[in-house]
Each structure stands twice: as C-alpha cells, then as structure tokens.
C-alpha cells in the first residue's frame, strides 16, 4: 500500500473522529507531514496506525489525550526522531516535478500571451538564457523562502487552544507580496546579458506542452 493510498484512506477515516479527537490528531498529522526530509511512506504508515488506535480508543470512550498524552508536540517529536529519512532518489523527482511544472506553465503562458499580443503589436521574442536563468534562480529563492516561512507559521500555530489564523494569513500574504514586488523590481532593472536566440510563441507553447505532458505521464506511472 503506497503513501498516496494511505493518505486517501486517512482522509476517509479521519471523518469518524469526534471534534475533540480530530483537533488533536489533525495537528499531529500536519506537524509530521511538514517534515519533508522524512520518508513519506513511513510517516503515513505510522499516522495510519495512530489513527486506527485512536478510533479503537474512541469506541472505548477514550480521548486522544488519554492515548497519546497531554504533550502532543513532545509525542510527535519523539516519533519524528525515530522516523527514517526520505531516500534522496525519491526527493529528486519530487523537486524536479515541481520545477518542471512551473517552467512548463510559464512557457505555455508566455506562448499564449505572445500569440495574443502579436496580433496588436510587435513582440520581442528574443530570449537571453543567462538573464532568464538569473531571474529563475531569484524566483526559486523567493518561493523557497516564502514556503519555509509559511511552514514555520503553520508549525507555530499547531497544538494551541487559541489560534490567530487571520493574523497569520495577513503575515503570509504580506511576505508573498513583498517577495513578488522585489522580484519584479529586480527583473525590470536587470540588464539583458549574454547571447540570445529567437523563441517564438509556438515553440514556447510546444516545449511547455511537452514538458507538462511528460510530468503528467510520470505521475500517472508512479500512482499505478
């Protein structure tokens, strides 16, 4: 049984929890899933065991606190300490897939945009690979920083009686907007460097489409 199936089963079974138990278990689940360096398969297996145990206990009138103790963070940290790390060869396709997805969609949007624009005006379809790479790295850096920041916000909000969700949402939104503004500003003032080549709208469309198609096939094969 692979991790994807376990996640689906987990979603289904979690609905049987009482509100109190769901609050406790839900936080535990997010906290453990946020540890991206851990083996996904092993994490999902232990999460399923805990859920089964909790459901059995619930039948006997026990709460999550009775079963897992009143220090959920400490309990989760103990589990995390003993969970094996994800193998590197599984991380590479995961991260590669995300990058490929973004690049693929960017190329398709660029193709579509240039097709529409070229109806009305002259469009510069030259691409400077060096400049493009610099901008891509910058965007990647910004995206990673934002994701890490949002994860930290989520992690801090877990296992608390009272939550200030709205304040966190504003913080996350502000971080995203500020990063985006910085990227746009730098892009605007970055001189075009290095060699360039023509990259027409249809070539952009084609390459983006092929890229997304390959990723889709890869995912389908993994799920099977």
């Amino acid at each position: 049984m692979n991790a994807q199936k376990l996640i689906k089963e987990n979603n289904r079974k979690r609905e049987m929890l009482t509100a109190e138990n769901e609050a406790y278990y839900g936080d535990l689940l997010i906290y453990i899933r946020l540890q991206f360096s851990l083996s996904e398969q092993q994490s999902e297996e232990v999460l399923m065991e805990l859920l089964e145990h909790l459901l059995e206990g619930q039948k006997a009138g026990k709460t999550a606190k009775d079963i897992f103790g009143d220090d959920p963070r400490g309990f989760a940290d103990e589990l995390i300490e003993h969970l094996p790390k994800e193998e590197k060869r599984k991380l590479i396709p995961f991260i590669g897939g995300i990058i490929g997805d973004i690049v693929g969609w960017l190329l398709i949007i660029r193709g579509g945009l240039f097709l529409v624009l070229s109806q009305f005006t002259e469009v510069d379809t030259k691409v400077h690979p060096l400049s493009a790479l610099l901008i891509a790295l910058m965007i990647a850096g910004f995206v990673i920083i934002t994701i890490v920041y949002v994860f930290k916000l989520v992690e801090r909000s877990l296992f608390r009686e009272k939550r200030n969700t709205r304040k966190d949402t504003i913080k996350a939104g502000f971080a995203g907007a500020a990063g985006m503004a910085a990227v746009l500003l730098i892009t605007k003032f970055l001189p075009e460097m290095g060699p360039s080549f023509e990259f027409s709208w249809w070539a952009s469309f084609l390459v983006g489409g092929i890229l997304l198609g390959l990723i889709y096939l890869g995912k389908k094969r993994k799920a099977a």
């Binding site: 145990h53 009775d66 079963i67 897992f68 103790g69």
Partner: peptide, 8 residues
C-alpha cells in the same frame, strides 16, 4: 506502555 508510547 499500553497506549501511544508504543509507537516511538
């Protein structure tokens, strides 16, 4: 040790 403590 009968409850959650067995998982770690």
């Amino acid at each position: 040790v009968s409850e959650g403590t067995i998982y770690p």
